[in-house]
Amino acid sequence: MINGKDIQTFIDKYIISENEWSILLSATIRIALIIIGAILAIKYGKKVIRKVLKVQVRGPLQVSERRSLTLVKLLESVLVYVVFFIAVISILPIFHVEIKGLLVGAGVGGVALGFGAQSLVKDIISGFFILFEDQFSVGDFVRIQNFEGTVKEIGLRTTKVRASTGELHIIQNGLITEVTNFSLNNAIAIIDFNITYEGDIEHAQQVIEAHLETMPKQYEEMVDTPKFLGVQNLGPAGVTLRITSEVKPMTQFKISRAIRKEIKEVLEANNIEISFPKMVLYNQQ
């Protein structure tokens, strides 16, 4: 038979008292407010960062649009780290965790881990030099060591490069020793094509140059009129002729394809034969 003492013991052991409910509710509300405040701080902080850098692009202290995009990504990343750190530090006292002791312990631990964190420091310093020297920015097409692709993000520790085939390469900033940036300056499209040895090179040159004069009106990527350079090589398949065109950064592939297509059509329209490898068989008898 259950007596009053057993009931009281059960209540004391398993049922939360009114005072405890009040403490739990208060702690939950405080944690919720801190989390909501952190989310709002990140949201509006990002807006402020974007607005400030947008003004900088248009203001007297000129910042290029490509560099502005890179700084936005980096500052947003720093903002998230700082806000979440402050939020965690604010939530811990609610669980009666001593912040001072934790910070002192973190300081001692930081000294102990200092030697092991040299690579981290190197990555961060290298990342800042990449930004301040404007070596490359988000959206640039680069080659870093053996990796080639479009820069998607420059963080405090790593740089993310997406290859043209879809792979995402994540490279530590401290390991970046060689960078080739294809997006800073105008590019040169180089087009080689062959005509037969029997073909009239001067006639081919006249026809091609006349057509090249019309191409800048069709393609805004062309900085100047393409140039016919002449005979590049005498090969087994025919006479190799070369055309070059100065174009805007990273548009050389598109313009090369367009010039090849139109030169083929022009040569065929003027009865100039494009050469191709041929096999000739001789009978010894």
Score class of each variant (00 low, 15 high):
residue 10 F to H: 15
residue 223 V to G: 00
residue 27 A to D: 03
residue 140 D to M: 04
residue 116 G to W: 12
residue 146 N to G: 10
residue 163 A to K: 01
residue 231 V to L: 06
residue 114 G to R: 09
residue 128 F to Q: 03
residue 256 S to E: 14
residue 183 S to W: 04
residue 269 A to Y: 09
residue 200 D to M: 12
residue 246 E to N: 10
residue 251 T to C: 08
residue 56 Q to K: 10
residue 274 I to N: 04
residue 51 K to E: 08
residue 134 D to N: 14
residue 92 L to D: 01
residue 77 S to H: 12
residue 102 L to P: 03
residue 182 F to H: 12
residue 53 L to I: 05
residue 214 T to Y: 05
residue 96 H to V: 04
residue 134 D to G: 12
residue 13 K to D: 09
residue 60 P to G: 06
residue 275 S to A: 11
residue 132 F to H: 13
residue 156 L to Q: 14
residue 127 G to F: 10
residue 246 E to P: 02
residue 184 L to R: 11
residue 153 E to N: 14
residue 217 K to P: 02
residue 164 S to F: 15
residue 27 A to E: 11
residue 8 Q to G: 06
residue 8 Q to E: 12
residue 187 A to M: 06
residue 157 R to L: 15
residue 206 Q to W: 08
residue 251 T to G: 07
residue 246 E to T: 09
residue 82 V to A: 11
residue 214 T to F: 03
residue 73 K to L: 00
residue 145 Q to P: 05
residue 185 N to F: 10
residue 183 S to Q: 13
residue 117 A to V: 10
residue 25 L to K: 14
residue 234 L to V: 09
residue 273 E to N: 07
residue 183 S to C: 08
residue 75 L to V: 01
residue 161 V to R: 02
residue 154 I to Y: 10
residue 221 E to F: 02
residue 196 T to K: 05
residue 125 I to V: 10
residue 171 I to D: 05
residue 171 I to V: 06
residue 82 V to M: 11
residue 101 G to K: 06
residue 165 T to S: 09
residue 126 S to N: 12
residue 126 S to L: 11
residue 45 G to A: 02
residue 231 V to S: 01
residue 91 I to N: 05
residue 39 I to M: 02
residue 136 F to D: 02
residue 151 V to E: 06
residue 186 N to F: 03
residue 250 M to I: 03
residue 213 E to L: 15
residue 104 V to W: 08
residue 59 G to W: 03
residue 170 I to W: 10
residue 165 T to I: 12
residue 278 K to V: 06
residue 22 S to N: 14
residue 6 D to P: 06
residue 228 F to W: 05
